[in-house]
Nucleic acid binder design. Structure first.
Lengths: 216, 216
DNA sequence: GTCTATACGGCGATAGAC
DNA sequence: GTCTATCGCCGTATAGAC
């Protein structure tokens, strides 16, 4: 509601500038440093002006989540289209991107007790999930063998495990993360869950995961 | 360091009272409501007195994490001793406890940008993990068949999946949570990962998971 | 050792001046 | 559209009463 509000001209460069500054502050110092006063200082304006565009501080976060999610959706779609032969590997690698996950975890932490942010994250996640599930499902219809986990379960594993691993690693929690990763990658390489073709592990992709997805 | 500080007599009832009030505030309203002034009001003392026992607000959280972790460790040990025939099921059910997980997630959110809290959580988690891994490992030595995931990997799955599920559910993220749960429980019932005995799914435990572990 | 009183700067939010 | 002034709450520091 308030989140949808758009103050100023639609072409307002100021608004985008403020979002850029807020996003950089968030990445560099965490959400606790995203305050009206600090965003204003970074953008070279007064804090009142920031409040003009984002009447409540959560409006700023919600707008940031939306913008970042649009970026992610675009990138995900491209990655899926570029590699239609193995969507589950695409999702696994997509979810293992560190920058994007750390920002998502940051937002989740922030949303833990801020209703408007929490539901914005749910919406964003569900939109991404829709695309992911569609890709897995259509692949499953052609190649699935009826015994393995369903597309929805596969999706949870391919996207949930990397997030859990990164969450724990960020805290310094010891766990068999490398072993889990190796386990999944062996599974992906085996071509399981879609067995009518050999499913070579990599046509051209290296064995290393990407590390450079934009941080939003 | 500052966290180790102990002001007042060791038997100070005031200190424990303050920790109780802080914990209740945390559960009822979230960590954002755990402030010197609110804890003091709840305990019927001045905020200065709270500061006397916990010079920085994070000291209060750290002390709370420690106390809660001791409770959890005690309960986990009892549960493992009561059911030595299937430690992985004990860990699965232990990790599916909602109250304990939600408080842990609360602390993780809090620790996301508070160094002293983050490392206290890591310590607490690793201490619990040590006990869990020891139980799984000794079971694995007697019953394992050498092909399935290692004890450490099994531990990550049995404890990590429930946390991920609860994290997502708390946000309203749609995912195949029920299917994953069913999948794991079918796996547990099958007696896999320790196949020399039939491993009846339940000797006396009901199929429902516990819901009442103390919230720390 | 325990506890109170007070002050300071930073925060989100609001009302209103230009 | 832009910016200022002000409010109440926050964590923290300190001085001192009992």
């Amino acid at each position: 509601m308030a989140a949808t509000r758009r103050v100023g001209t639609q072409t307002s460069g100021t608004r985008d500038l403020l979002l850029d500054c807020a996003e950089r502050l968030m990445v560099e110092e965490g959400y606790a440093s995203v305050t009206y006063r600090k965003v204003a200082a970074k953008a070279g304006v007064t804090s009142g002006l920031v409040q003009y565009y984002f009447p409540a501080i959560d409006d700023l976060f919600v707008a940031g989540i939306r913008r970042a999610n649009e970026r992610n959706l675009r990138q995900l779609t491209e990655a899926l289209e570029a590699r239609p032969d193995d969507p589950k590997r695409v999702l696994w690698e997509y979810s293992r991107d560190e920058a994007a996950t750390s920002v998502m975890l940051e937002f989740m932490a922030l949303g833990n007790h801020r209703k408007s942010i929490r539901s914005e994250i749910a919406d964003a996640t569900n939109r991404v999930r829709e695309v992911q599930l569609a890709a897995l499902t259509s692949y499953w219809r052609e190649h699935g063998n009826g015994e393995d986990p369903s597309p929805a379960a596969m999706l949870f594993l391919m996207t949930g495990l990397p997030k859990m691993i990164q969450l724990e690693e960020g805290f310094g929690i010891l766990a068999a993360h490398e072993e889990i990763v190796a386990l999944v990658e062996r599974y992906l390489d085996s071509g399981a869950w879609g067995t009518d073709r050999g499913n070579q592990p990599n046509v051209k992709a290296p064995t290393k995961r990407p590390r450079s997805r934009p941080k939003g």
